[in-house]
Design a protein around this nucleic acid. Structure first.
Lengths: 117, 117
DNA sequence: CAAATCCATAACCAGATCATTACATAATGA
DNA sequence: TCATTATGTAATGATCTGGTTATGGATTTG
């Protein structure tokens, strides 16, 4: 498997958890400490620390140091790569949606076939 | 957790495997039978069938019927939703890359400081 | 210095994941 | 009908995941 593919593995795996996605969304607005990141969740602090570890291993976040705090910041590269992978399918699904629209229109036209004008 | 979030869970989890991503890439070019999908991989047929089950459970593919074949086709909706999630971060990482470019430029300018003109 | 704050790590457990082999079933065709 | 083709399902086992509690280290503050 290529290196880029291995990176997509860990990136998508990291994105597959709702807690981690919420953390990412939060970090998109700026760095935050572990405590701040943990606050919205009904979950122990070690659980959050482990989610952060997963995100860090995936390269999605990086950590700084500020007194006792260990503020995390979001990293751009893996998100950009995952987006690029999915963007490659845009042509595919836009076509599909257009086809579906057509089907629905045809269906509607057919339903109205016997209507008075 | 919202329904949309649950869907992103299974979609991203499905995308976290290289075999499944390759299957998706293949199916973007049109439907294919299980045998055709299995052919590129050094893996047993049941293993492929299970990957297909994962993809189907995630709603990423659907199955048809043609004699003994069970051709699969790619579905648009989950891919579109995952793309939409990641697109929301585009502004973030494009800004980050611009900042990085700036850092690199500054670094270069600084390196050339003592150069003769 | 002692207490409190912030966070990481270890040990543990239940359940999910991903592969294997062996077998079953459905459709085709000689 | 019988062999072949195409595919799904079951049983099994190793590893990964995601949570918990317990504990320890570093830093700030009283």
């Amino acid at each position: 498997m290529s290196l880029a593919a291995a990176r997509l593995d860990t990136t998508f795996a990291a994105l597959a958890d709702p807690t981690r996605r919420a953390i990412i969304v939060r970090l998109a607005q700026g760095p935050a400490s572990v405590g701040e990141l943990a606050q919205p969740f009904a979950m122990s602090q070690p659980a959050i620390s482990r989610h952060l570890k997963v995100l860090e291993t995936a390269g999605l976040i990086s950590g700084g140091k500020d007194a006792q705090r260990r503020p995390r910041r979001l990293e751009a590269q893996p998100l950009a790569e995952a987006t690029a992978f999915l963007e490659a399918f845009r042509a595919f699904w836009e076509t599909r949606f257009t086809e579906l629209d057509q089907v629905l229109e045809d269906l509607k036209a057919q339903t109205n076939e016997g209507d008075v004008p």
